[in-house]
Design a protein around this nucleic acid. Structure first.
Length: 1063
RNA sequence: GGGCCCGUAGCUUAGGCAGGUGGAGCGCUCGGCUGAUAACCGAGAGGUCUUGCGUUCAAAUCGCAACGGGCCCA
C-alpha cells in the first residue's frame, strides 16, 4: 500500500497510522484490487485454509454473451460474500468460476457476424471453420466478462475456470451419457418437439420463450362421411396444420349437439359441444337454427373426410375419426383438431390410438413431398393458402384474428412449430420419484423454493430431449450401426481412441469426431449420430466436471456433492433441474446439499429490464457512479435474496452515503491519533479506563456480530448487512463519535482519551473483519491502515483474518437497553429545547426526567454523565417513577356536565372559585378522600380533571417511557458560557476558512458592540483562547479589528467583528 | 389456463410464520450543529397496509376471490 511505511529519518522506519483523504470509492477499489493482485491474495487465502472444513461450491456458469447485467452481478456478489464469509470462518473452499460456452445463442451471433441465413451457409463455409469462430467468440467474451466480474471484487478461481468447451469437460458429459445408456435411460424416439424452423433444430422446453402474437382464429367444418351436408366443427389458430389433420378429439362427458342451420337459403347440420353452440352460431352468422339431437361425447361415433384430401393425396390413405380426450376444454367448439405430427397432446393421443404420426413438414419449415400441392411452401406462408383452399371446399365457417401467447425460439425469436422427429431422450420420467425424494433431502433457502416450486416443476416434467441438430456443442458420443441399428456410447476420449484406432484428435468438437467409424459386431459400419447436446446438458454435469471427473476420482470422493449453490429462480427449471436429473442418472443422488434461490433484478417500476423497453441499467454504470462497494451492499441489503429486486438509483446513493459515513468515522480520529502517536499495540492488554459509553459500543459491536452470524447461517444476507449499516449510522456515527469528541480534542495524554482511542480502534478493526465479506475493498483499505500500518506481523490482508467473534466479556445487554433510553431522553430534550428555541450550544440550568418505570430511572442514574453532556445541562433531576415534578403547577379543569346538574344556579360561582383554587391541594384531597371542600361546596372526583401547567421557561417533551422537562432559565453563568460558545464557533469557522491545521495557533481580535455581552465574554477569555488555540486575544468595544481574515457576525442580535491571523 | 413468489407513505422497505395503537430510510417543509464539514443532527407533514368477501371480541398479519407485477409452465 502506498502509505504503509513512514520514513522518519533516513535510518529509522516506524510503523504508524496515517491520515487519509476523503472517500473516493474508485481510488480505493482500484488500489485494493491492485494490491490483491500484487500479493496474490486470492490464492493465498485459499491456501491458508487448506486444513479447514471442506466447503465445495459450484458456480452456476454464466453464458458467454459478452456483457454482464445487474442480475449476474447480484448473483456473483452473493456467491462472493458467502464464500468470503465461509473462508473467514475457517472453511477450506473449493470452487472454480464456470463458463457456459456452447450452444445456439453463440451460433446465432456468429451467423449474424458472418451474414449467414441458414444451415446451408454454415455447411458451405465449413463446419470446422464455423466451430472455430464460435470458439473464438466464446473465449473472447469470457475474457471480457471476467474483467467485469473482477471489478466487482468477486473472488473466484478465474485462473482455472471450468469451461464447457474444454475436452475434459466434454468427457464428463460423455461419461454421464454413457451411464444413462448403461442404465437404459437413454433412448431414441419419435416425439413431437419444439422446433425452430430458422435454426432447424429441436429446442428444449426451457428454450421456448412465450410472447404475444396475432394469429388466425378459424372455425373449420369437417364433412361427416355418409351424412350429406353434415359437419363437425373445429377451431384452430394454426391452419397450416390442417393438411396434417388425422382426427378430432371430443370430451367424453360433454354433450354434443347436432344443429340444423340455415343461411343464404342453404341448410346444413353442424356438430359441436352443446354449451358452445351460441358462440359457434354467432361466429358463423347463422340466424335460424334447430337442435336435432344431443349426444354425450363418449357416444359420438363419427368418421369424416380429410378436409384437404384433394390437395394432399397422402391423406386419402388415412381414415379420420373422432376420439375421446380429457384435455378437451369447453372453449370454442369443444371439438379439437388433431394433427399427431404437430402437437404434443395430438401426438400422445395418436400414439394411444395407434394413429399415423403424419408430419408432412421438413426441418426447414417447408412442406415435404407428402404434402402434395403444398410441397415446398413454407408453413409461415401457408395459413392464407390453406384458408383459401378450405373456402373453395366450402369448409370455412368463420375466420378472424386472435392475440395470444405463443412460443418463440428464445434466441432468434422465430415462432416455433411442433414437429414429430427422431430425437435422443433421457428418460427422466423414470426417475421422477427418486428426484422428488432427493429434493426433500436438499436444504432449500427459502424452504418453498424446493418444496413448492421445484417439486412442482419436477412433477410436471417430461422426458428430456438432449439432441440438437446443430454444430457448436458437445458432440453426442453415440455411434449407431447403419446395418443392424446397434448403439454404442463412448464415455471418454481414451475409449473412443481405443475403439476406433483414431488418435491425436485436435479436440473433441465437430467436425473432428464426425467421420470416425466403428466396426459393428454384425460387420456393419457404425457412425456417430450427427447431433450435439442440448446446452443444458453441458451445465448439468458441472458439479463433477469441475472436479475433473471422470479422470480424477479421488476429488469426487473427497468433495462431491456440492455444499452450496445459488442461482436465480429461473434456474428452477434450468440448472437446479438439469443438474438434479443428470446427477441421479450418474450417481443416484442429488449433486448439491443446499441451494439459495435468489430473485431477478427489475426496473424501478417492477418491470423486467429489457433492451426493447430501454430500462436496462448495467452494473458498470452503477460502479462508475458509486463504486462497486455501493453496488455490492445495495444488492445484498435491499431485499431478501429470494425477492425480486426493484433497482433504484436513490437507494444505491443511500448505501454510498452510508459507506461515506463509515469512511468519515474511520477518518475522524486519525489526525488526533497520528498527532498523539497512538500505538494500539502498546495499549492492548494494559488497563484502560473504559467509560460506560466505551463499554456500550463494545457491547453493541459484539451483539452485532452475533446478529450477523445468525443471519448468515440461513443465508439471510439482507439480515446480515442491514444491521451493519444501522450500527454504523446510528450507534457509531450519530452517537458514539459525538460522545467521544471532547475526549479526542484533549491535548494532554490522559487515560480517558486513550480509552476512547482504544475503544474506537477496537470497534473499527472489528468492523473491518465483520464487513469484509460484503464490502471487501473498503474493509481492506481500513485494515491496511489500522492494522498493517501498526503491526507488520498481522495477516497481510483482512481476508486472511479469522471472522470477527463476539467478545462475551463485553456483552452487556442491560447497558445497551439503558443507552437506548438515554438516547430517547436526549432526543426528547432536543425536542423540548426547540419549542423554546434554545440552541444546544447554550447550556440549560437543569433537565428533569419523569420516568414511568424504574428501568428508566436506573438508566438515568447509571448514564447520568452521558445524559448531562449530550443535553448540555448543568444538572439532571430524576423523579421517582410516577412522581409529578413539584415545580409544575396544576390546573383544575371543571367538568361542566357534572357540575351543572349538581350545583344548578350556583354552578357559575363554583366555576369562578375553581379558577382561583389551589390545584395541588385539590389533587391531594381527591387522591386521599375522593372529594374535597371548596368553600361551602363539596366536589367529587367526577366533577373535575387536572392538567399540568408548565412554567414559561420550562419546555416539556415526552418519550416512550416518560417525560422530560428542560429548564431554560438563563443565569449569568449560562449566558457567559453561551456567548463564549457562540464566539468559539465563529472563530473555529474562520480557522477552517483559512484552512489551518488542527494544531496551528492564531492571534485573534474580537470586537463586541454590546457592553453587557462584552463583559460576559470577557469572563471566558481564557476558555475561548484555549478552545481556538489563540496565543493572543484582544477583546473590546470599538477596537480595531484586523488579521488574515476579518468577518462581521450577528450573534443573537449582537453585532460582533472578528479577525484572526496565523501566528 | 396452472404452480410459486410479491403488492405497506411520492420512492425503497420493516412488520406477516406465532392476529392486539404500522416502524424506518430517501425525498419534502421547518429548525439546529460546526475541526467527520461537498459531512452531520432534530422536528413536522405524509398511510383506505392493492380491492372485495370471510374467520375472529380484534386482521397489514389467517382463509377465499379479484386486480397488478415477477419467474416458471401449458
Amino acid at each position: 500500500m502506498h502509505y504503509r511505511i513512514t520514513t522518519l529519518h533516513s535510518l529509522e522506519i516506524i510503523y504508524m497510522l496515517k491520515e487519509v483523504p476523503q472517500y473516493d470509492a474508485k481510488v480505493v477499489e482500484q488500489n485494493i484490487q491492485k494490491f490483491w493482485d500484487e500479493i496474490d491474495a486470492y490464492s493465498r487465502v485459499r491456501e491458508l485454509r487448506k486444513n479447514g472444513k471442506k466447503f465445495f461450491f459450484v458456480d452456476g456458469p454464466p453464458y458467454t454473451t459478452g456483457r454482464i447485467h445487474l442480475g449476474t452481478a447480484w448473483n456473483k456478489i452473493i456467491k462472493d460474500s458467502v464464500l468470503r464469509y465461509r473462508s473467514m470462518s475457517g472453511d477450506h473452499i473449493l470452487e472454480r468460476a464456470g463458463w457456459d460456452m456452447h450452444g445456439l445463442p453463440i451460433e446465432v451471433k456468429v451467423e449474424g457476424v458472418l451474414g449467414f441465413k441458414s444451415k446451408k451457409d454454415i455447411e458451405t463455409y465449413g463446419v470446422g471453420n464455423f466451430v472455430a469462430k464460435c470458439k473464438e467468440f466464446a473465449l473472447s467474451h469470457r475474457d471480457e466478462m471476467t474483467v467485469q466480474f473482477r471489478n466487482l471484487g468477486v473472488w473466484l478461481n478465474w485462473k482455472e475456470p471450468y469451461m464447457t468447451l474444454r475436452d475434459e469437460y466434454i468427457e464428463a458429459a460423455w461419461w454421464t451419457l454413457k451411464q444413462a445408456h448403461v442404465k437404459k435411460l437413454l433412448e431414441k424416439g419419435l416425439r413431437v418437439v419444439n422446433w425452430c424452423p430458422r435454426c432447424e433444430t429441436a429446442i428444449a422446453d426451457s428454450e421456448v420463450e412465450y410472447a404475444d402474437e396475432t394469429d388466425p382464429s378459424v372455425y373449420i367444418k369437417f364433412q361427416v362421411m355418409g351424412e350429406e351436408n353434415t359437419y363437425i366443427v373445429i377451431w384452430t389458430t394454426t391452419p397450416w396444420t390442417i393438411p396434417a389433420n388425422i382426427a378430432v378429439a371430443v370430451h367424453p362427458s360433454f354433450e354434443y349437439a347436432k344443429v340444423r342451420v340455415r343461411k343464404d337459403g342453404k341448410e346444413e347440420i353442424l356438430i359441436m359441444a352443446e354449451q358452445l353452440m351460441a358462440n359457434v352460431l354467432k361466429q358463423g352468422r347463422y340466424r335460424d337454427y334447430e337442435v336435432i339431437e344431443t349426444v354425450l361425447g363418449e357416444n359420438l361415433r363419427i368418421e369424416y373426410d380429410a378436409p384437404l384430401g384433394d390437395k394432399v393425396p397422402a391423406q386419402r390413405k388415412f381414415s379420420h375419426n373422432v376420439y375421446l380426450a380429457d384435455f378437451v376444454t369447453a372453449e370454442n367448439t369443444g371439438c379439437v383438431h388433431i394433427a399427431p405430427g404437430h402437437g404434443i397432446d395430438d401426438f400422445e393421443l395418436g400414439m394411444k390410438n395407434k394413429l399415423p404420426i403424419f408430419c408432412p413438414v421438413g426441418p426447414d419449415g417447408r412442406y415435404t413431398e407428402e404434402a402434395g400441392d403444398y410441397r415446398g411452401m413454407h408453413v409461415r406462408d401457408a395459413n392464407k393458402v390453406v384458408l383459401d383452399d378450405l373456402t373453395v371446399n366450402g369448409l370455412l365457417l368463420a375466420s378472424g384474428k386472435i392475440s395470444h401467447r405463443y412460443g418463440h425460439c428464445w434466441r432468434c425469436k422465430t415462432s416455433i412449430i411442433y414437429l414429430a422427429t427422431e430425437q435422443w431422450f433421457l428418460r427422466v420420467t423414470d426417475i421422477k420419484e427418486q428426484m422428488l425424494a432427493e429434493i426433500e433431502k436438499v436444504k432449500w433457502y427459502p424452504e418453498w423454493a424446493g418444496s413448492a416450486r421445484f417439486a412442482d416443476w419436477v412433477k410436471g416434467s417430461r422426458d428430456w430431449c438432449i439432441s440438437r441438430q446443430r454444430y457448436w456443442g458437445i458432440p453426442i458420443p453415440v455411434w449407431v450401426c447403419e446395418s443392424c441399428g446397434e448403439t454404442e456410447v463412448m464415455g471418454t476420449r481414451h475409449e473412443l481412441e481405443k475403439r476406433t484406432g483414431v488418435s491425436k484428435l485436435p479436440d473433441l468438437h465437430r467436425p473432428n469426431v464426425d467421420n470416425i467409424h466403428i466396426k459393428c459386431k454384425c460387420g456393419g459400419q457404425m457412425s456417430r449420430v450427427p447431433d450435439v447436446f442440448d446446452v443444458w446438458f453441458d451445465s448439468a454435469v458441472a458439479s463433477w466436471a469441475t472436479l475433473n471427473f471422470p479422470h480424477d476420482e479421488k476429488a469426487l470422493k473427497d468433495w462431491w456433492p456440492a455444499d452450496f449453490i445459488t442461482e436465480g429462480h429461473d434456474q428452477t427449471r434450468g440448472w437446479f433441474y438439469s443438474q438434479m436429473g443428470a446427477s441421479l442418472i450418474a450417481f443416484g443422488k442429488a449433486p448439491y446439499k443446499s441451494v439459495l434461490m435468489h430473485g431477478f433484478t427489475l426496473d424501478t417500476e417492477g418491470k423486467k429490464m429489457s433492451k426493447s423497453l430501454g430500462n436496462v441499467v448495467s452494473p458498470e454504470e452503477v460502479v462508475a457512479k458509486f463504486g462497486a462497494e455501493s453496488l455490492r451492499l445495495y444488492v445484498l441489503s435491499q431485499n431478501a435474496p429470494w425477492d425480486d429486486l426493484k433497482f433504484s438509483w436513490d437507494e444505491v446513493g443511500n448505501v454510498h452515503r452510508m459507506l461515506n459515513i463509515l469512511w468519515n468515522v474511520y477518518r475522524f480520529p486519525l489526525p488526533y491519533m497520528v498527532l498523539d502517536k497512538f500505538n494500539p499495540l502498546e495499549i492492548k492488554g494494559t488497563a484502560v479506563a473504559l467509560r460506560l459509553e466505551d463499554r456500550w459500543i463494545l457491547s453493541r459491536v459484539s451483539s452485532l456480530i452475533r446478529q450477523v452470524d445468525a443471519a448468515m447461517l440461513e443465508y439471510n444476507l439482507h439480515k446480515a448487512t442491514r444491521p451493519i449499516s444501522e450500527f454504523i449510522l446510528e450507534d457509531l456515527s450519530r452517537w458514539y463519535i459525538q460522545l467521544i469528541r471532547p475526549r479526542t480534542w484533549r491535548e494532554s495524554n490522559d487515560p480517558d482519551k486513550l480509552a476512547a482511542y482504544y475503544t474506537l480502534y477496537e470497534v473499527l478493526v472489528t468492523l473491518t473483519k465483520l464487513i469484509a465479506p460484503f464490502a471487501p475493498h473498503i474493509s481492506e483499505e481500513m485494515y491496511q491502515n489500522l492494522v498493517r500500518n501498526v503491526d507488520p506481523k498481522a495477516p497481510e490482508s483482512v481476508h486472511m483474518c479469522d471472522r470477527a467473534v463476539p467478545r462475551e466479556e463485553f456483552i452487556d445487554t442491560e447497558l445497551e437497553k439503558q443507552m437506548n433510553i438515554i438516547r430517547e431522553i436526549v432526543e426528547a430534550s432536543s425536542n423540548a429545547r426547540q419549542k423554546l428555541k434554545r440552541k444546544l450550544r447554550w447550556p440549560v440550568k437543569k433537565i428533569v426526567v419523569a420516568p414511568k418505570k424504574e428501568d428508566v430511572a436506573a438508566a438515568v442514574r447509571r448514564l447520568e454523565e452521558v445524559l448531562k453532556e449530550q443535553t448540555n445541562a448543568k444538572e439532571i433531576v430524576l423523579l421517582a417513577p410516577g412522581e409529578t415534578w413539584e415545580e409544575l403547577g396544576v390546573e383544575v379543569l371543571p367538568v361542566h356536565a357534572a357540575l351543572g346538574p349538581a350545583f344548578k344556579k350556583e354552578a357559575g360561582r363554583v366555576l369562578a372559585e375553581l379558577k382561583n383554587a389551589d390545584g395541588k391541594a385539590i389533587r391531594r384531597a381527591i387522591a386521599e378522600n375522593g372529594s374535597f371542600e371548596l368553600k361551602e361546596w363539596t366536589l367529587t372526583a367526577d366533577m373535575i380533571t387536572f392538567r399540568d401547567s408548565i412554567p414559561q421557561e420550562i419546555a416539556q417533551a415526552g418519550f416512550s417511557a416518560g417525560d422530560v422537562y428542560v429548564d431554560t432559565e438563563l443565569t449569568r453563568e449560562i449566558e457567559c458560557e453561551g456567548y463564549a460558545r457562540e464566539v468559539i464557533r465563529r472563530l473555529q469557522d474562520m480557522r477552517k476558512e483559512l484552512d489551518l491545521a488542527v494544531e496551528e495557533e492564531i492571534n485573534a481580535v474580537v470586537e463586541i458592540r454590546d457592553e453587557r455581552v462584552l463583559e460576559l465574554v470577557s469572563e471566558s477569555k481564557d476558555f475561548i483562547s484555549g478552545e481556538v488555540r489563540a496565543k493572543s486575544m484582544a477583546l473590546g468595544s470599538g477596537i480595531e479589528v484586523e488579521g488574515d481574515l476579518v468577518k462581521d457576525w450577528d450573534v443573537e442580535d449582537v453585532r460582533m467583528k472578528m479577525g484572526i491571523c496565523r501566528n
